[in-house]
Amino acid sequence: MKDTRPGTGAAAGGRAIEISGLRKSFGTTEVLRGIDFHVERGEVVCVIGPSGSGKSTLLRCVNLLEEPSAGTIRVAGVDVTDPDVDIDAVRRGIGMVFQSFNLFPHLTALGNVTIAQRKVLRRGRAEAERIARENLGRVGLADRVGAFPAQLSGGQQQRVAIARALAMGPGVMLFDEPTSALDPELVGDVLGVMRGLAVEGMTMLVVTHEMSFAREVADRVVFMDGGVVVEEGPPSRVIADPAHERTRAFLSRVLDPAAARIEDADAAVDADVGDAAAEDGRP
């Protein structure tokens, strides 16, 4: 499935993703303030961090949905920030899965998975449909090929979106909080599919709040806050035994919401003693 990307052959020996000195500003606010990290081939890297820390922006810079303000991003050795690079060719090699699915509502599941194969890769109808069915089967939706997105549950829609990206034969998959918009009972199906991809050796960069997924599946966890990478390492270290206070505070918040309230209250003591006391009083 890998390396069907045109134009990457010569440098295909490079790392899957290599980011250095990445900065991104929207107007005067700098959202990414110098990011350096990489993803090896076959590696699963999970990015965690508080809301607004720049995780989505980082992911969107990798496939140039956002244009970086400074720094370089290499995908399979190709510098995607080079103005002469063929953006469409680069994107063909990168699968992207969005928080809000972004399925094409006017097309069936099959249509969603075939359209880019046909219009971008110029595959014939029969071949595109065969590959589409294969990938819809891979995400457990072989029996829903004819359904329109509106007729599918959120979890099913997200799995169609994963199949749509896989059908292009990407070398790396980007996931931006793929389960955040799902009802809790549907999260497991999508994570299961992602776990399967990881086992197959797919290179994945995943923004997620699912700590158990990160702990089990990630080779490496990257903690971001305020537009920088605060720390990174194997999940056994970053999640179980974080080195930085900011990481600890974030983790206690996502792992134990009750603890988070107390911590917020502690932080608020300086600002408003009365309020903090009230918070502490809660169970």
């Binding site: 809000s100 972004n102 094409f104 890769l121």
Partner: peptide
């Protein structure tokens, strides 16, 4: 037509024009 539609189309390697013709316009015309 939501922005995410164009973004999904472009992420799949479609050019601006292709995304417009295959994804955005069919929805806009509806």
């Amino acid at each position: 037509v939501p922005r995410g539609q164009t973004e999904a189309a472009r992420s799949l390697g479609m050019s601006h024009g292709r995304a417009m013709a295959s994804i955005v316009l069919p929805q806009a015309f509806r």
